[in-house]
Amino acid sequence: MTSISQRSSGGRTVRLVALVAVALLMSYPLLWLVASSFKPEQLIFSEPGLIPSSFTWANYADGWTRVGIPFGAFMLNSAVICILSIVGNLFSCSLAAYAFARLQFPFSKIAFGLMLVTLMLPFHVTVLPQYIVFQNLGMVNTILPLVLPKFFAVDAFFIFLLVQFIRGVPRDLDQAAEMDGCNKYQIFFYIIFPICRPALVLVAIFTFLWTWNDFFSQLIYLSQVERYTAPLALNLFIDATSGESAWGMLFAMSVVTLLPLFILFVIFQKQIAEGIATTGLKG
C-alpha cells in the first residue's frame, strides 16, 4: 500500500519536473521578450540572461508614443476588427452549421463537401483575387475586407466544428420546439444556438486569436497609419532601411499587444478546455 503510493508519488514528481522543464523551454523566447522589454536598449543583445541588471520602464513610456499616435489607438483598431469578426463568425458560422446539420436542401451534401475543400485551400491562392474584388468595390484601406467576409461564414473550420457539435444535439429537442410552435429560425435562435455555447466560446476565442495575431491580410488592406492595427504598428518599430530599429520599444509594445491574449486565456482557460473536450461529442 505505502510502497505503491510512494512509487506513484515518485513518478508524479518526475513527470512534474519534466513538464516544467519542457514548459520553460517552450516559453523561453516569450520570457526573453518580456525580460528584454525592461532592459535599456544597449543591454538587450549584449546581456544574455533573463534577469536584467538594470531595470527600466523607459521602453514602455517611449514606445507608447513613438509612432506619433498613442499605441492604444492601434490596440483599439485591432479590438474593433476582432469584435466585429467574432460577432460575424458566431452568427454566420452557426447558422451555416445549423443548415448543414439539420436542414434538407438540394445539393446539401455537395455544398458541405465543397465547404470542407476550402479548408485545404491555401490562403495565398485566394488573396490576390480577393484583393481585386475589394479594390473594385472600393473597400481597400478600410476594415471592411477584414470584417465583412466574417458575416458570410467563410471560416470552414468553425462551420465544421459547429456541424459536428449540432449533430450531437438530440433531434428530439428540435422536434419538441417544433411542437412548441417554433419555426426553423426560432429553433435555431432559442434552442440550437444557446446549446452550442461551449463550441461558440471556442469559435470566439480562436477568432480573436487569429484576428489579433493576423499580420498579412491587415498589411495588405490597411495603408493609412491611423487605421493600423497593433501588429502593423509593431512593424513600424523595425526600420529596415536605416538599420536603426528601436528593439526595446518594439519588445515593450509586443508585450502590451500580448497582454489581452494572456488575460483571455487566464479567464477562459476552463471554457477552452471544456469546449475542446465536448466539441464533437454527444451534447
Binding site: D172, L173, Q175, A176, M179, Q186, Y190, I191, I195, G283
Partner: peptide
C-alpha cells in the same frame, strides 16, 4: 402536445422556462 421518450427538455432553460416556452413563442 407530445411527451417525448427522451423527455426532450431544453437543457439551457430552467424548469419554469421549459414550461413557459411554448406560450412565449
Amino acid at each position: 402536445a407530445m411527451v417525448f421518450q427522451s423527455y426532450a427538455l431544453y437543457p439551457h432553460m430552467s424548469v419554469y422556462e421549459n414550461l413557459a416556452f411554448s406560450l412565449r413563442i
